[in-house]
Design a protein around this nucleic acid. Structure first.
Lengths: 246, 246
DNA sequence: CGCATTAAGCGTATGGCATACGCATTCACT
DNA sequence: AGTGAATGCGTATGCCATACGCTTAATGCG
């Protein structure tokens, strides 16, 4: 009885994995799970996760707040659906691409884009991925290493490494607002300049002095991201060579 | 007038950086910022960030909810204080340690411990660090690279890379509950076993089959962490050698 | 054609939450 | 003793998630 497992789970997961029952009777639905989820995603994108409340969502959908609960078990449930839907499909790879580095880079870049488009994802992903959406991304990343001599555990470790980097980089980038107001873009840099006392924080002061925090002098944010990713993949390359020799 | 900057900031930062005014008059405080913050940290540690409310905190401190607002501008402010205080002091390094890899590893391991002790930190850190506590950690990490030929921007990039990895690894580890209930520790593994359809998610299915998600067969969580960290630092090593040659 | 069945939509109510505002309290210093 | 100042806190407001149950409307059977 494999359903024993499913019965202890959030309702959203059972729906996402297609365990929903096909009903025919009753009133014709004016609302649908899809409409609700995509409206919720749009709301979170536009006004931030904090602005997402059942009431505001209902308002946006033109229905009463309690109507939502016919399609979603609760707010947590809704957020699971959002998490599963927002990323969209991952890039498609063969099961063993010849160019692991190119594939994994593409995967990372696309995921980076997802996080930039939906910054709230990073704030919601507090539980391990169990929905088809996220597992598809995970599978794609594992596939990109399909042609390497790494063992399964090492592959997973590499994928998590890349995932964490992408998440962190996107979160950092979206958290420094780069305010649309005039030249105030470098507010963070200016603040650090004042706070980084060279006696107390010598290394930080030198970094600030070198302009590391200035509004991306010379390098675009994407370049920074790629630079870090390359460091990381160099390390993966070392591991792959080592595994190939063994 | 450097204070122009400070006036637009959260109140917490001005206090943390010692811009507080030394008062002498008035009633003797029964509450103190320190007591409030450490109680809040204890509450979040024990019952999770969601359980942290001004009311519950006041209850724990034996005061009325509104009393807290005499010491803290609001909940956001309180969380800033928590974020600054919880990590404690970073490991101390010379400004240019001979062994960058050992130093950075120590830094990462200690920070990993911090995240495991206070899982809520990862959920709160949505804005760039601007308090003395976090900047001290940042400075320590930058110092660990002080003896390398990397330029300031590359150093920062490396530090962020390590930081993101540590955060992500800790978050992943704490999000898979490892439930204290009997052998139910591998609930996530069992669920994935059922969900990872080999047709739809071939790479994932293979990983599950290989036991990657089993409750850490053979490898302790710390070993997994170290393994990933070593991959990462291998990549940093490559960058350092490259910079040394140039 | 009408009626029972079924599920959707939603009104109301409850309890928790952050917090604005103002008053009462109690100390330090004159 | 008195006065100014800061603390502690009671009250009130408005937002929030959501339990419960009624109303509404569509289905399909008799």
């Amino acid at each position: 009885m494999p359903d024993d497992i499913g019965n202890q789970l959030p309702h959203a997961l059972n729906v996402l994995w297609g365990r929903a029952k096909p009903k025919g009777r009753g009133r014709t639905p004016a609302l649908s799970l899809e409409r609700i989820v995509s409206a919720a995603i749009a709301l979170a994108d536009e006004e931030g996760l904090a602005a997402l409340s059942m009431a505001r969502l209902a308002e946006r959908l033109g229905c009463a707040p309690m109507s939502l609960y016919r399609h979603v078990a609760g707010k947590d449930d809704l957020q699971l659906f959002m998490l599963a839907a927002a990323p969209g499909p991952p890039p498609e790879f063969d099961t063993a691409p010849a160019d692991w580095r190119g594939s994994l880079t593409r995967w990372a870049v696309e995921l980076f884009g997802v996080y930039l488009r939906h910054p709230w994802i990073a704030q919601l992903a507090n539980s391990p991925p169990m929905d088809p959406g996220q597992l598809a991304w995970l599978d794609a990343a594992l596939r990109s290493l399909g042609g390497t001599p790494l063992d399964p555990r090492a592959r997973f470790s590499v994928v998590m490494l890349v995932l964490h980097y992408v998440r962190g980089a996107a979160q950092l980038l979206t958290s420094i607002p780069a305010e649309p107001e005039e030249g105030a873009d470098g507010a963070y840099a200016a603040l650090l300049t004042e706070l980084a006392d060279p006696d107390r924080f010598p290394a930080l002061a030198r970094a600030v002095e070198a302009g590391v925090f200035d509004p991306h002098t010379g390098a675009a944010p994407d370049d920074d991201f790629h630079a870090g990713l390359d460091h990381l993949l160099d390390g993966v390359g070392v591991a792959i060579e080592r595994a190939a020799r063994a």
